[in-house]
């Protein structure tokens, strides 16, 4: 028996997923920055994301935690990752609700916070139904 469920391993659990995503975001910053004429933002954003991707790969060779975050083979570090993501998501949702209330109090229509809040709610309900259906 494996201590991690290989059946559920996928491209999301590849050790190159996080660095690859960082590079992809960097390329996106570069593309939209250059397209919008914001050269400084384009190259700075790209450089930051490249440095972050390299730092992830290098730290994965020296730190068990970083390695675990990259390869997702350690259930305890996976739990840390999941709990941290949950906390971060909760913080974003609270911020969106607070900003929505502030915008309404200022007499605005609540954009874009009500769209973000609706998106969060719909994703939550969808995920809930998906989990309920799966197990």
């Amino acid at each position: 028996m494996s201590t991690h469920d290989r059946c559920h391993r996928s491209w999301r659990h590849s050790r190159w997923m996080a660095p690859g995503l960082s590079l992809a975001i960097g390329v996106a910053y570069l593309a939209v920055g250059l397209a919008g004429g914001q050269t400084t933002f384009a190259w700075t954003g790209f450089a930051i994301m490249v440095v972050f991707a390299v730092a992830l790969v290098v730290s994965g060779r020296y730190s068990e935690t970083a390695k675990g975050l990259l390869d997702h083979r350690d259930e305890r570090i996976n739990a840390h990752d999941r709990d941290a993501a949950l906390l971060a998501g909760g913080a974003v949702i609270v911020a969106v609700i607070v900003m929505f209330c502030i915008e309404i109090a200022r007499g605005h229509d609540g954009s874009p916070y009500y769209q973000l809040g609706a998106l969060g709610g719909l994703v939550y309900l969808g995920a809930l139904l998906w989990q309920r259906w799966r197990r």
């Binding site: 991690h4 068990e64 350690d74 259930e75 305890r76």
Partner: peptide, 11 residues
Amino acid sequence: ALGVSRQTVNS
């Protein structure tokens, strides 16, 4: 042997 980190064994 278990496929986890040393830190996890310690914990």
